[in-house]
């Protein structure tokens, strides 16, 4: 785990302020930006992966059964997956906070 910006002392700044750990921003949770979430109806899903193709995060990956599922840790709830799903298998549901 990388230290947070406000935790770093000047002595801990790497030469050139280089970030040496690839992809470490993935510790940041973007899922809490969300006010609505995608819900997959597995009965309609044909596992085509179009939702994954068009996910801007990307946060949609295959689960053990081969269904494409949004990881809610990252999903911002844009709804593109639902809009683009050729089988209308994804619905966007308002979330209560």
């Amino acid at each position: 785990m990388a230290k947070k910006d406000f935790e770093l002392t000047w002595k801990e700044i790497p030469v050139g302020s280089i970030v040496h750990e690839p992809g470490n921003a993935s510790e940041y949770q973007t899922g809490d930006w969300r006010s609505q979430m995608p819900v997959l109806d597995k009965a309609k899903c044909v596992k085509c992966g179009i939702c994954y193709r068009f996910c801007p995060e990307p946060c949609i990956v295959k689960d053990d059964e081969g269904y494409y599922v949004a990881d809610l840790f990252y999903c911002k709830g844009c709804g593109i997956c639902a809009y683009e799903c050729p089988k209308d298998a994804i619905t966007i549901v308002k979330e209560e906070h």
Partner: peptide, 10 residues
């Protein structure tokens, strides 16, 4: 802002 000063000092 939380870390710019540290970068400059370094």
């Amino acid at each position: 802002p939380a870390v710019y000063s540290e970068c400059r000092k370094a």
